[in-house]
Design a protein around this nucleic acid. Structure first.
Length: 115
DNA sequence: ACCTTGACCACAA
DNA sequence: CTTGTGGCCAAGG
């Protein structure tokens, strides 16, 4: 259980901050780690306080980056060599690549328990 | 205490 | 692939 006194927000940001480069976690996974099932709440936290943490390492269960952030997220993924699916290196340099890719969760999923 | 709002999730058709 | 349905839960009004 999370420490009382530490807000949900703090807890979420802490977990996100622990995600190493090139790896990702889903909203639901983060919620589960915090002993909650409120995946949406994690989303709300990120929407409001996620601006100063590696938000691109938090994605949907489907492997898609957060809504309306595909482009920026992609740049980070290419930088960190995050395992992607459904895209060739050719398409990676094009602007319209946003939305046509997904993170390979099988390879990139990370859990704080197994660092 | 009730209602609404979501960077969500899972499953069915 | 797309829609629809129901569930989850912290925060703010």
């Amino acid at each position: 259980m999370p420490d009382p006194g530490e807000s949900f927000v703090e807890a979420v940001l802490e977990v996100v901050g622990d995600i190493p480069p090139g790896r990702v976690m889903t909203y639901g996974q983060i919620a589960a780690v915090l002993g909650s099932r409120g995946a949406r709440v994690v989303g709300q936290v990120m929407a409001r306080y996620g601006s100063d943490v590696p938000w691109w390492r938090v994605i949907r269960a489907s492997g898609e980056p957060p809504a309306c952030h595909e482009g920026r997220a992609l740049q980070h993924y290419l930088e960190e060599s995050t395992p992607l699916k459904g895209m060739s290196t050719e398409r990676a340099s094009r602007e319209d690549a946003a939305g046509s890719y997904r993170v390979d969760l099988v390879l990139a999923r990370w859990s704080p328990e197994f660092d």
